[in-house]
Nucleic acid binder design. Structure first.
Lengths: 341, 341
DNA sequence: TTGTAGGCGTTATCAA
DNA sequence: TTGATAACGCCTACAA
């Protein structure tokens, strides 16, 4: 039904070869012909059939992102920014972005990766929410399929990644709290198999150690990167006989729940209790009080990942394989004394 | 390089025809053969090449969503939930989801739609953020290309849509404010060409009219669906000689900015000023104070849209073309008197 | 500068 | 129950 290259060729009494080459802007086609072909194609609404082109060229000009969605419909709060970054950068390079959702570690996830890689539905993949041992990394490495990760798993192998140094920056976040005089600082983390949990909790411990502060087990709680879990962990912390004076959270969603719990306890965040998050999600500046956090430039990170991936797809020399992006420590009222105007 | 149907056939001394049919679970193939083929395919890691399949079948088993992203990297805060819903429902039906970003009304947007439709990259489209006059609707209708919208444009034509009745529910939101005794209620809207602005502002006016309240022009402000613009509009409203006692916002992001502005003015939201939003984005329950809003079940809406779209793609009888989803009026402290525990 | 022809990997038609 | 064969629409040696 749709118009094919044949139709355009027939209309102009040209061969499909010429039409094809004219449209690809080859140099060996008469200028006049070029003009005519393009104009006619435009008029007839001809756009090359993507499937045919892919089959012939053996590439899809598409990159894939399988977003890790736990439970019914939880999803990262910065997924919007990430997808925007991936999409923008991809389209600037003539690539499309294929997205699917799957529970981390599910068979659905595995099948999706199989279909996309073996079926050549995508030319490369973007991987986030890395696990310490991550079958995706192992699988793709072994297949020799192009991919880029956000952070790295502990699996050995060469592959490009874009990273924010969680250890270092969580430690800096801690130093900020310690500099404010806090000595009993709690940590609310996430599942131990996640790379970010590993890094950030290490930063937490390193900071305590460096300052000669004791590691108090009861001040370490585990959540699941949701506000709800942050709320509950905070409940446990705030009802302790000797509660913490500061709570550092593995991410902003968790911190949001902590703010809520503190409010329900009639605790003034900022003066009575310091709360800090990590990520810099949209909305962290609009919490009450505004949240101190480490701001990751997610949009830029996404663009960078796509850039690396496309290089990899084109088989270009890897250059810098491991890119570190500097986030920003944003100090807001949640860790400041009362600020009343 | 990857294994093809040929390789599988060769290994089993069968024809590719038989392999193909065995894998599609046709009935006219020996059970034993069936088993053997599937097992071997599995072992060899064979997955049909998607491009070849698409070319032959003349469909892509893919649906497209071009997400409207204004300026550098603004994007809807509920895009995560939407994409999760689209992705989940699509994959349950064996479809993939293709996503791209483009500025509404840009030529990039138009070219993306052309490539996807004419190039048969997708079998159908999901359209959001409808404009009153929307070229996308006109274009797709004219092409006879399957699509489903969230809300409808004013363009005539038959197509399926999933809707939340913005007029009615904004009016209900207003009635809540009026019932609380508010008489000077401001409205912060968005660009006039957006369908949601048209609907919600109409709801605002209808409510005033129904209650015999005057429409006060200076209480009507325009933003752009961002917290920043809500903040600025609130600044204007709160410095008025005779400021409003309540502010109803076209969406939650705008309302978030209003909360922030009120706080900066030392105004107690809830007792001194009522603020309400619309959408029910993740985070609205964690603002301070928690925000009164109309909660749209975005995830469910997304699933429903995909469902309708797939019916449409399969050419099934349209059935219900226009689906209304009931949101929920969630009353929180931003419109309640002081609630101190 | 243009045209001919072969094949990318599948699925579907038809015959065996 | 299985196999040979012809497309699907495009790109690209190679020939003219």
């Amino acid at each position: 039904m749709p118009v094919t290259i044949r139709d355009v060729a027939k209309r102009l009494n040209l061969s499909i070869t010429t039409v094809s080459r004219a449209m690809d802007g080859y140099y060996d086609v008469a200028e006049e012909t070029q003009r005519l072909v393009n104009q006619t194609a435009q008029e007839m609404g001809y756009v090359p059939n993507q499937a045919a082109r892919q089959l012939r060229r053996q590439r899809s000009d598409t990159i894939g992102y399988l977003l890790p969605s736990d439970t019914p419909h939880f999803s990262d709060p910065y997924v919007a920014e990430l997808v925007a970054g991936l999409g923008d950068q991809a389209s600037e390079h003539g690539y499309d972005l294929l997205v699917a959702t799957a529970q981390p570690g599910s068979t659905a996830e595995q099948r999706a990766y199989e279909r996309w890689t073996h079926g050549r539905k995508v030319d490369g993949l973007i991987i986030t929410r890395l696990r310490l041992q991550d079958w995706r990394v192992q699988y793709l490495l072994q297949m020799g399929f192009p991919f880029v990760t956000k952070e790295r798993s502990d699996d050995p192998g060469d592959y490009p990644s874009v990273e924010v140094d969680g250890k270092r920056w969580f430690r800096l976040l801690m130093e900020h709290l310690i500099a404010l005089g806090h000595r009993r600082i709690a940590y609310i983390g996430a599942s131990a198999e996640l790379k970010i949990q590993s890094d950030r909790s290490t930063g937490y411990r390193q900071a305590l150690e460096a300052e000669g502060l004791p590691l108090i087990p009861e001040l370490i709680q585990t959540g699941n990167l949701s506000a709800e879990s942050g709320y509950q962990a905070a409940q446990r912390l705030l009802t302790l006989p000797n509660p913490p004076t500061a709570i550092a959270c593995v991410d902003d969603m968790t911190a949001t729940g902590v703010l809520h719990a503190a409010h329900d306890h009639g605790i003034e965040v900022g003066s009575d209790l310091a709360v800090a998050g990590f990520d810099g999600i949209l909305g962290s500046e609009y919490t009450q009080p505004p949240l101190t956090t480490v701001n990751q430039p997610v949009y830029q990170i996404a663009r960078r990942m796509v850039e690396l991936l496309i290089h990899r797809i084109h088989g270009e020399s890897p250059g810098q394989q491991q890119i570190f992006i500097e986030p920003e420590l944003v100090i807001r009222q949640s860790t400041q004394g009362r600020n009343k105007n």
